[in-house]
Design a protein around this nucleic acid. Sequence first.
DNA 1: GTTAACGTTCCA
DNA 2: TGGAACGTTAAC
Length: 678
Amino acid sequence: MALSLSGDEEEYDSEGEQQRAANRPKPKAGPSAAVKLPSNRSASGARRRRTRCRKCEACLRTECGECHFCKDMKKFGGPGRMKQSCIMRQCIAPVLPHTAVCVVCKEAGKEDTLEDEDDKFNFMLMECSICNEIVHPNCLKVSDASGVVNDELPNCWECPKCNHAGKSGKQKRGPGFKYASNLPGSLLREQKPAKEDAADATAATAAATAVSAARRRPERDETPRSRGEDPQPRPQPLAPLLPLPLPLLSPRPRPEDKLRKKRKLFDDDEEEELSGRKKEKCDEPYFSKLLHQIKTEEEDQDADEEEDGDEGRERRFRSGAETNGSLGDEAEPDDKDSRSALLHACVRAAAAVGDSDQSLCSSPRAGPSSEAGSETQERGPPRPKARRKRRLANRELSRELSRALNSEIQETENCLANENRQPLKVEPETENGETHRCCDKRLWTKIDLNRCTSITPLMLSGIIRRQPLALDLSWTNISKKQLSWLINRLPGLRVLRLSGCSWAAVSALCTSSCPLLCSLDVQWVEGLKDAQMRDLLSPPTDNRPGQLDNRCKLRNVRDLRLAGLDITDTSLRLICRQMASLSTLDLSYCNHINDQSVNLLTAAGTTTRDSLMDINLSVCNRVTDHSLTFFKRCGSICQIDLRFCKQVTRTACERFIAEMSVSVPFRLTEDKLLQKTC
DNA sequence: GTTAACGTTCCA
DNA sequence: TGGAACGTTAAC
């Protein structure tokens, strides 16, 4: 079959065969350089480069000016070599270019000209993620084959031909997935034990997917169904979900939303993880067990029986949502629909199948939904029918799985919402009586995940969407990759708390830029000693042209908390040198801190001498009365905490107060706790 | 023609 | 294996 190539793409294949020189400077690459197909790709055509949708939240943002890619841009003073989009602006749903045409009829997508939803699908351009061909499904004229719509990308599917040929689903991901791989879904892997099996991964995926679906679900329009639908017992009520990242309703419901044939329920954040779920791991044995059962039973099912049962079940899931959540009746639409979507997602994701309808909407705002017209499969003209894969048949199992997932989701959501001491369900009502959840930054200036035992991709994506000014990840098991991912996407972060985390994770600060950070808490970080402090405080090691920022990464930090660390004067020297704005310093429980350390901090010529306002030396057993004489040098000091310092006497504190009283009045608010009186 | 940036290649 | 480089595409 011919390809939908523009003229300059005709030579891709021949050029693509050429091997580039191994070393730079590379020879001038041919026109194929950017589009050469991977050698393992059984491609029959070149891939069309996708482009921004220009509608998604990311596309509508302005460049942050702070991220790695922004800094490379000429407009921000960089060399412009990397030529990548701002991290905050990476499109969630890259679309086919306007110039893309059907390889059969050579015409562009025509769905916008049609009213009927089936026709819309038939006449929209679909790009095969395996062979890359772009066709109108209607032009294939294959009625008995099956195409599997890829929910992860707009206008992407595995075409009937490739499906029929049994080509590998390994290449399911179409172009544009580099973004997905950067999203936090891919980060889950890092925090899971490698030995766990694939079934667990599927379950984890199901959980993430379910959340995703639940969150996405209300964004979509509802189509009342006239068919009789089996009542499905309502799932157990979920805890109210987090405010959604996107407006509840799309400005204009897109009819294409109902045309999806395969339901994977990917959220933008979980895409990567879900894509790779077969090999991924999960730390939830319960899910593993369930999935094992599900898979075993699934394989014993007769195909026809499965299909019937699944459709019925699908309708039942939808029924739950639609009965309760029509647009006009949205008192609690999000939760109800979300629950329905959640169940739907659980079953589908758990069984690693999906054939329900899915949106081909190019707008990521109308992301994957858990429901949409099964009627589109049941009526209308013959058209390539979505492939029906084997699915979960055991309803009880699916319910059980759903309950388990609900529980985890509730826990996750509670973690985020409760920890922020914010009501879970405070949603302003619109004039239409419809609730809106929002990610208004003003509502989420601080996100507190302190002691959350597990940082999930959902949490990470939730954090990014809310762009908090303060983030508390203390005593969590966050990984380096996760933290790095977060920091790079939180250019406005002011306060970061990593108390009790591992140095492995905290070391993400060595390579990531956090330019506005003014408060850093790395108390009790395991493994954080002088050498690590040096890494933390030293300028970026990247000295390539354009990377001119050789200042300390933490130069703007004013509040530094180092309690419980095995650091010595070596670190303090660096702090004095690099952190000119430091005003609050917590060195409590630092056993190596002594009078000489205080001498260093208050020595002539150091910035800390003048900037230091609040110092905590409690339980520093090597600090003696002598340190108090050093503090007399500090022009701004307001509080000196020497509580439980065995070698500091109350007498010395009182003497300090007496001597300072001439210029700055101090008092003892507690034993050995000196505070300036206002 | 210019600009933005996608997607591949290659290096550390 | 992740990230930088870069040719080329897509939009304007």
